[in-house]
Design a binder for these strands. Structure first.
Length: 232
DNA sequence: ATTTGGATATCCT
DNA sequence: GGATATCCAAATC
């Protein structure tokens, strides 16, 4: 592990978040680009069989539903159904036949979309994560979407879970002091120009690509194309 | 029956 | 840090 020391806390008060809403259904009822940016610094906690693991979200990507050629919603039936469903629903899928990806459905009313969780800074249950991840370095326990799911015990069968009502999942507010960069989304072949990958910078816990440009909260709206604009 | 679409572990330097 | 081998689900043919 590097010499990085996080100055952030696991459960800061909601009032420090600038964005004054609680994380509830309404919070997820926004464009995935906004939610992805806001999720950086928030904590994902999963409790199963009495075992709790938690991590601070340091990397996430937005996918804007059927209109976004990079989104599964543009070509997969199940994805289309789930991503058009209630914000706060889990959408999982399998990548490379091996890795489970965890997304959270987020969209404005009547729309469709999701945020892919790509990396976490481990906070709780680190010993469990080390076991699940076969002893890799702590800054690689959840430094990619497949690693994240493995470390957190996320399964393909979690598709459709409601993260807001589930006994197993929780999302907790993050802190206000975040330095967030945006870059192109990783591992896609269509709509490659949308800068909808957000990550904390600097952080040793993000996945391989660390180049991006700083994006302040007030700039996020500019990254969202007007309704009807083709994404490409 | 065939094609498509994806991130990681492992090895190498 | 970089190259390479790997597998399954869903859509399409």
């Amino acid at each position: 592990m590097s010499g990085y020391i996080s100055t952030r806390t696991a459960t800061p008060s909601a009032s420090t978040l600038g964005n004054d809403r609680a994380i509830d259904r309404q919070w997820f009822t926004r464009h995935p680009v906004e939610v992805a940016w806001d999720l950086i610094g928030c904590t994902l906690r999963v409790t199963r069989n009495g075992v709790t693991v938690a991590g601070r979200i340091v990397e996430a990507e937005a996918y804007a539903g059927p209109a976004d050629p990079a989104s599964h919603a543009s070509r997969l039936k199940v994805a289309r159904q789930v991503m058009a469903g209630p914000p706060g629903t889990v959408y999982t899928y399998l990548s490379y036949g091996i890795h489970t990806m965890m997304n959270i459905v987020t969209h404005e009313d009547g729309q469709s979309g999701a945020v892919l969780l790509r990396a976490l800074e481990p906070l709780e249950g680190i010993d469990v994560m080390r076991e699940r991840r076969n002893g890799v370095a702590d800054d690689r326990l959840a430094n990619g979407p497949g690693s994240l799911a493995r470390a957190m015990g996320i399964r393909l069968a979690d598709i459709g879970a409601d993260i807001l009502c589930s006994e197993e999942f929780a999302i907790v507010f993050g802190d206000a002091e975040r330095h967030i960069h945006a870059s192109l989304r990783i591992g896609i072949s269509r709509a490659v120009d949308a800068p909808w990958r957000f990550f904390e910078h600097p952080s040793p816990f993000v996945s391989a690509h660390r180049r991006g440009r700083a994006v302040e909260r007030h700039e996020v709206a500019r990254l969202i194309p007007p309704p009807g604009t083709p994404i490409d």
